[in-house]
Design a protein around this nucleic acid. Structure first.
Length: 700
RNA sequence: GGACGGUUAGCUCAGCGGUAGAGCGCUGCAUUCACAUUGCAGAAGUCACAGGUUCAAAUCCUGUACCGUCCACCA
C-alpha cells in the first residue's frame, strides 16, 4: 500500500498495540536467557481516569523497550491501587451528588458499592495506558485488593506484630472530624493563619494560648525549669478561676517550654496538643479529652458542651472577657495550622488507640541501603532530602477509620481485653485466655502500608519463579512528590520482608503542569486527559514532547507548541520513510563504494547511537531525545538525503541502513511510527522492531 | 525556622569552566522535484543582581532579590 503524504497517527496507532500484545512481546519470556530487567508500574489510583501527568510513565516504557531490545528478560508489571482514603473521598462526592452520604449505608454495602465503582475505573485506566503504547505485561496485572495481595499484607502485619515492630498505643493522632479518620503525619498539610493569641489569667500567672477552648482539658501549667520568674510556683498547686468555676491546677517545670514565648507559661492539655501530650507523659498527667471525634466539646466543658471548636473558642473568649480573665489579645499573631489535605478542615490532635509501626530500626536500614549504594536516587540531590526525612521519621500510624481498604487482622478478646493477631483468618478463641468472645478491629490499613509492599507482593504472586528471577527490581520511576509516601516506605518494608531493597535505582520525575504553569488538580478544573492529547497529536508525539527539551527531574509545562513540533517530527519521519521505502529506485547498487557523504552520515549515526545509549544509561532522557531529533531531521534528512538525490541508486543501501538504525534508536520514544515504518522496510530482520536488536556502535 | 529547585532570545526550556543553544514565534527568500505538519537564509540575549576564585565563569564559591516546592508538634 502506497504511503500517503501526511502521516495519520490514528490509523497506525490503533493497529500495533494489539499486534504486540498478541505476539506476547510484552512478556519477559520472549528473552528467556536474558538477564532480568524489571520495573513495577507505580499503580495508579483506581478511582479516576489518568491525568496527563501519568503519561510520564513513558520514561518507564522507554527504559523497558530499550532493555528489551538489548536482549534482557524484561518485565514491566502493571497494577492498580485501591487508594483507600482517596477513593472513599471520591466516592463520597459521587454519593453527595445523589443526595446521599456514607452514613446512609452499612459497612458491607458501602464497600460493595465502592468496589463496583473502582472496577469500572480500572478498565478506563487500562485503556489509557494502552493508548499511550506502554508495553506492560498484562498477564501479570495486580490489584492491591487481590486476595493474594491482601494475604501478604496481613501476613506482614502479623510478623511485625509478633516481632514487636507493630504495637497498639493510645496516643494523639491527626484526626479529620469531617472525614472521621486519622492520618499519618505526611497527610497533614499546614496553612499560615493569623490567630488571636489570648493572654489569660490562671490565678497568679498569665499565659498565652490560641486554643482557648481546650482549657477544660488542662491538667497542668508548665514553665521552664530555669525561669527565675516562676521558681516559687514549681511543684505547687495554684487556685484558678475558670468560666465554669474555680479549680486547682499544678505547676510543673519542663525543658520544652520556651521562656521567650508569651509569658513563658503554658497550659498543658495532653489530650489536644502533641507537645502537651509528651509533657503529660513525662509528668504522668491525666489525659483529659474535652473534644470529641465529631469536633464538638463534651460534657467536661460544662455549658460549652455540644459546641464546635470554633464556636466554643469565641464563646469562651467572650465569657472570660466578661469575667476579667483575659489580660490582652494579640491579634497579629501568626501560626501554622494543620488541615486535612482533602477538605481543609482543621486537624484535631485527638487521643485514640491505633496501630503503629515502630520505625526506627526500619529507617536505619533504609538509610544504610542508600549510603552503601544498594539503592541510588536520581536526580542525586534528592538523596539529601531522603536522608533528612528518614533521620527525623516518627512512628507510623497505619490505622484508618474508613471502610475502603484491607482489614486489619486483629481481634480484641472481650474477656481479657488482649489482642489476637492472625495472618488473616478469624481466630476461634483468644490465644491468651482461651475466651471465645472476640471482636474484630473495624479499621483498615493505611493504603501506603499495602503499597509499600508492592514490589515483592506483586512478584511473589504473579507467576511461579518471578520473585526469584525479578526481585530486587531494577528501577522504580515515579513523581518526586511521593518519595516519602511511597518510595521511602517501600525501601523500609522491602528490606524488612526480603532482606533486600526492592529496587536498585530510584528515578524521580518532575510534575507536569497545565499550559499556564499551574499544578493540575480536579478542584481547579485544569486536569488534562492524556487521551485528548493522544487523539490530537498522536501517542508518539505526546510521548516525545514529555521527554524532549526539559532536563529530567524538573517540572514542565504542558506545551501545545511543543506537542505540535513533535507531531511535525513524526510527519517528517514518515516522509523520510516514504522517500526511502516507497520511492525506492528500480535499480540499486548492491555493494556501493562509500563516498564522503556516506562516510559522514555513518559516522554521525555512530555518534548518535553512542550518545543515545549513554544518555539512556544515565537517565538523561532529554539528551537522547534532543539528539535523535537533531540527527534525524537536520543531519539525515536535511543534509544527507538532500545530497543523495543525485546519486540515488548508489546511496539507497545507506539510506536504508541509516533509516533502520534510526528507527531502532527512536523506537523506545516513539513506538508506533517506528513500528509502522519498520514493517515496511525491505530489509527488516525481525517480526517487529520491538524485538529487534539495539544498534551497536560499529568498530572503526 | 530549615532544606531544595528555578531566574539564559518575545514565549517554553537545554547547556553547567573555554569567546551563547533548541523548539515555537518573528523577518526575508524558495518550492507542486519525500515532506507547507516543508526547505534555505536571517534578526534577536550585558545568561536576575553584587562580590570573589581562575589565564578563562551562564557554568565554581559567597551574599542579595524575586518565583516555586518540600520538611518542621512552637503553645
Amino acid at each position: 500500500m502506497s504511503m500517503k503524504k501526511v502521516y495519520d497517527h490514528k490509523k497506525t496507532e490503533s493497529k500495533w498495540y494489539s499486534f504486540w500484545e498478541k505476539k506476547g512481546f510484552f512478556k519477559p519470556e520472549i528473552n528467556p536467557k536474558g538477564k532480568p530487567y524489571t520495573i513495577i508500574l507505580p499503580p495508579p489510583n483506581a478511582n479516576a481516569d489518568l491525568h496527563f501527568g501519568h503519561a510520564m510513565y513513558v520514561i518507564e516504557d522507554i527504559l523497558i523497550r530499550y532493555h528489551r531490545m538489548l536482549g534482557d528478560s524484561t518485565l514491566w508489571l502493571p497494577g492498580a491501587d485501591h487508594a483507600g482514603f482517596e477513593t472513599q473521598v471520591v466516592f463520597e462526592k459521587h454519593l453527595a451528588k445523589k443526595g446521599k452520604s456514607r452514613f446512609d449505608f452499612d459497612r458491607e454495602t458501602l464497600y460493595k458499592m465502592i468496589w463496583d465503582f473502582v472496577h469500572i475505573n480500572k478498565g478506563n485506566v487500562e485503556t489509557q495506558l494502552k493508548r499511550l503504547g506502554f508495553s506492560l505485561d498484562w498477564t501479570r496485572y495486580k490489584f492491591t485488593l487481590d486476595p493474594e495481595i491482601i494475604k501478604i499484607v496481613q501476613k506482614t502485619f502479623k510478623k511485625m506484630y509478633d516481632e514487636g515492630l507493630i504495637y497498639r498505643d493510645y496516643r494523639l493522632v491527626n484526626y479529620c472530624t469531617k472525614h472521621g479518620t486519622s492520618f499519618s503525619d505526611l497527610e497533614v498539610v499546614y496553612e499560615d493563619r493569623k490567630s488571636p493569641l489570648y493572654y489569660i489569667k490562671y490565678g497568679p500567672l498569665t499565659l498565652a494560648t490560641v486554643r482557648l477552648e481546650t482549657k477544660f482539658g488542662d491538667t497542668a501549667v508548665a514553665v521552664h525549669p530555669d525561669d527565675k520568674r516562676y521558681q516559687k510556683y514549681i511543684g505547687k498547686e495554684i487556685d484558678i478561676q475558670t468560666v465554669i468555676g474555680p479549680k486547682k491546677i499544678k505547676v510543673i517545670a519542663d525543658e520544652s517550654v520556651d521562656p521567650k514565648f508569651g509569658t513563658g507559661v503554658i497550659k498543658v492539655t495532653p489530650a489536644h496538643s502533641h507537645i502537651d501530650f509528651d509533657i503529660g507523659k513525662k509528668h504522668n498527667l491525666e489525659i483529659r479529652q474535652v473534644i470529641n471525634f465529631d469536633g464538638r466539646l463534651n460534657e467536661k466543658a460544662g455549658k460549652f458542651a455540644g459546641m464546635k471548636v470554633k464556636e466554643a473558642r469565641s464563646a469562651v473568649a467572650e465569657e472570660m472577657q466578661k469575667k476579667g480573665l483575659i489580660e490582652k489579645i494579640d491579634d497579629k499573631y501568626k501560626n501554622r495550622v494543620g488541615v486535612c489535605y482533602k477538605c481543609g478542615t482543621e486537624i484535631e490532635p485527638l487521643p485514640m488507640e491505633q496501630w503503629f509501626v515502630k520505625i526506627e530500626s526500619l529507617a536505619k536500614k533504609a538509610i544504610e541501603s542508600v549510603k552503601n549504594g544498594e539503592v541510588s536516587i536520581y536526580p542525586k540531590n534528592f538523596t539529601k532530602v531522603y536522608f533528612q526525612w528518614m533521620e527525623n521519621i516518627r512512628d507510623w500510624n497505619i490505622s484508618r477509620q474508613i471502610v475502603w481498604g484491607i482489614k486489619i487482622p486483629a481481634w480484641r478478646c472481650l474477656d481479657c481485653k488482649k489482642w489476637v493477631v492472625t495472618n488473616g483468618p478469624t481466630p476461634k478463641k483468644c490465644t491468651h485466655c482461651s475466651g471465645s468472645k472476640l471482636e474484630r478491629d473495624p479499621e483498615v490499613f493505611d493504603t501506603w502500608f499495602s503499597s509499600s509492599q508492592w514490589p515483592y507482593a506483586t512478584l511473589q504472586t504473579a507467576r511461579k519463579g518471578d520473585f526469584e528471577k525479578f526481585y530486587p527490581t531494577s528501577v522504580i520511576e515515579t513523581g518526586r512528590d511521593i518519595l516519602f509516601f511511597w518510595v521511602a516506605r517501600m525501601i523500609m518494608m522491602g528490606i524488612y520482608s526480603t532482606k533486600k531493597a526492592p529496587f536498585k535505582d530510584v528515578v524521580l520525575h518532575g510534575t507536569v503542569l497545565d499550559p499556564l504553569g499551574k499544578k493540575m488538580s480536579k478542584s481547579k478544573n485544569n486536569v488534562v486527559n492524556p487521551l485528548e492529547i493522544v487523539d490530537q497529536y498522536g501517542a508518539d508525539a505526546a510521548r516525545m514532547a514529555l521527554v524532549y527539551g526539559t532536563a529530567f527531574g524538573n517540572d514542565q509545562t504542558l506545551s501545545h507548541p511543543k506537542l505540535q513540533a513533535m507531531r511535525n517530527f513524526t510527519n517528517k519521519l514518515w516522509n523520510i520513510g516514504r522517500f526511502i521505502i516507497d520511492m525506492k529506485p528500480e535499480k540499486v547498487k548492491s555493494a556501493p563504494i562509500l563516498n564522503k557523504d556516506d562516510k559522514w552520515i555513518l559516522e554521525e549515526l555512530d555518534k548518535t547511537t553512542k550518545f543515545v545509549t549513554v544518555s539512556l544509561e544515565k537517565y538523561r532522557f532529554n539528551d537522547a531525545a534532543d539528539t535523535l531529533y537533531e540527527f534525524i531531521w537536520h543531519q539525515f534528512a536535511d543534509k544527507y538525503i538532500e545530497s543523495s538525490k543525485n546519486r540515488r541508486e548508489e546511496s539507497q543501501p545507506i539510506l536504508e541502513k541509516v533509516l533502520g538504525e534510526s528507527l531502532k534508536l527512536l523506537h523506545p520514544f516513539m513506538p508506533f511510527i517506528t513500528e509502522e515504518l519498520w514493517q515496511r522496510l525491505p530489509n527488516k530482520t525481525q517480526d517487529s522492531i520491538m524485538v529487534s536488536e539495539w544498534p551497536i556502535i560499529s568498530k572503526k
